[in-house]
Simulated assay, not measured.
Amino acid sequence: MSDLKTRIGEDVKTAMRAGDKARLGLLRMLTAELKQREVVESIELTDTVVLAAIEKMLKQRRDSESQFRAGNRPELADKEAEEIRVLSEYLPQQLTAEELDALLAQAVAETGAQGGKDMGKVIGWLKPKVQGRTDMGKLSGLVKAKLG
């Protein structure tokens, strides 16, 4: 059983007791996403699986927030930003730029990557080490720049 899933379950109960409807709704969506992964994919929920679900929800909310801001809908953008803040509480400590650069250099050295064609190798090496600790979209851009 995932420690993260247990923590989310406890936070659902806390939000219920506190009457925090916005937080409760978001955590229930997350719980439903986790349950679906568990049932449909027939997998045991590890922290890695839970983090992947959280990252998926974060990406959706970041996209929505930027679209709402571009569409001059600040009230909806603010709601998305608040959900991003709540979901981010479940992520591990984010990597600093220096830590990310060091891991990227190590990945290139260990995979023997020569150029853009080796981007998949580098991302494959990095992904398990940075899961939940950095934005994978940004990481992809960094890898592309480094190998470009």
Rank of each mutant, 00 (worst) to 15 (best):
A109D: 12
A109G: 15
K13N: 08
T96P: 02
L45N: 10
E55P: 00
K13I: 04
D101V: 14
A97V: 13
M57H: 02
S64P: 03
R37T: 09
T96E: 07
D3S: 13
V122S: 05
G115A: 11
V12Q: 05
Y90S: 06
D135Y: 11
D63H: 01
E98Y: 04
A32C: 04
L126K: 01
I43K: 01
L139S: 01
L95I: 11
R69C: 01
D47S: 08
T48I: 14
L34T: 00
E89L: 10
V108L: 01
A15N: 12
E10A: 01
A77L: 07
V12R: 08
G112K: 05
E41N: 05
K117F: 02
V143I: 12
R7T: 08
W125Q: 11
S140M: 11
D78G: 06
G120I: 13
E44T: 12
L139V: 03
A22L: 06
R73I: 07
V122C: 11
L126F: 11
K146T: 08
V49L: 03
L34D: 03
K127W: 13
D78M: 14
V50Q: 05
L58Y: 07
I54H: 01
D135A: 14
A97N: 07
A18S: 12
S140G: 08
K35E: 15
L142N: 10
T6D: 15
L30N: 01
E65W: 05
V12T: 00
M119D: 09
P74V: 06
E89I: 00
G137I: 05
A32R: 13
G141S: 09
P92K: 02
T111K: 11
W125M: 13
K5G: 07
G25S: 08
V143A: 09
L26A: 02
L76D: 10
T14F: 06
E80G: 02
V130P: 06
A52G: 15
R17C: 00
A22K: 13
E75N: 05
D11N: 13
D47K: 10
K117H: 03
T96Y: 12
D11S: 12
G115H: 01
T134K: 09
